[in-house]
């Protein structure tokens, strides 16, 4: 189990990147699995770097959402090392799949044996946030019930 601080900061970063609240992310039950997965593959120092960039931006922007987004683009998503990892983190929350990092990343920052495309666990798939984001259920799980498909979709506005 990660330290309470790291875990909280990981969730805060994840919320900023995914557009889902910390509460909703926690509801998937996948926080610890994802924190472990990402740490195992890219190393804890890189995870620390990710969350500290976000923490710094939050402190610096003081609640200005647009400035925070701008900072995430400038300092995280366009960073050669952190950018691909941050994008992988988004996909992890959305579909439960860790995507093998780009070849250039592997060449530059060193490959990890565990860095291949895989589904973290059966639950990681069914808890993916892509499905609720589009008002659907993950294929093969969490059905809405007989005949509900006849109604228009209910999609939360963000």
């Amino acid at each position: 189990m990660a330290s309470t601080d790291l875990r909280a900061e990981f969730l805060a970063l994840s919320a900023a990147l995914t557009g889902f609240s910390v509460f909703r992310l926690e509801g998937t039950g996948q926080t610890d699995a994802y924190l472990t997965t990402i740490g195992d593959i890219v190393g804890e120092a890189t995870v620390d770097a990710l969350v500290s960039v976000h923490r710094g931006l939050v402190d610096a922007t003081g609640g200005d959402e647009a400035e925070l987004q701008r900072g995430l683009r400038r300092e995280l998503l366009s960073d050669a090392k952190l950018g691909p990892v941050a994008r992988n983190l988004v996909k992890l929350w959305y579909v439960g799949t860790w995507y093998e990092l780009p070849a250039a990343w592997r060449d530059t920052f060193g490959p990890s044996l565990r860095d291949r495309t895989f589904v973290v666990s059966p639950e990681a798939y069914t808890e993916g946030l892509l499905w609720p984001a589009v008002g659907a259920n993950p294929a093969g799980a969490k059905p809405f019930g007989y005949g509900m498909w006849a109604k228009p979709p209910r999609i939360d506005t963000v």
Partner: peptide, 21 residues
Amino acid sequence: LVDRRNTFGPALRRALVQQIS
């Protein structure tokens, strides 16, 4: 959307709805 259109956060959610639903 994530890797090439560089979308994230709430904008990603909105883009997914437009692209998938």
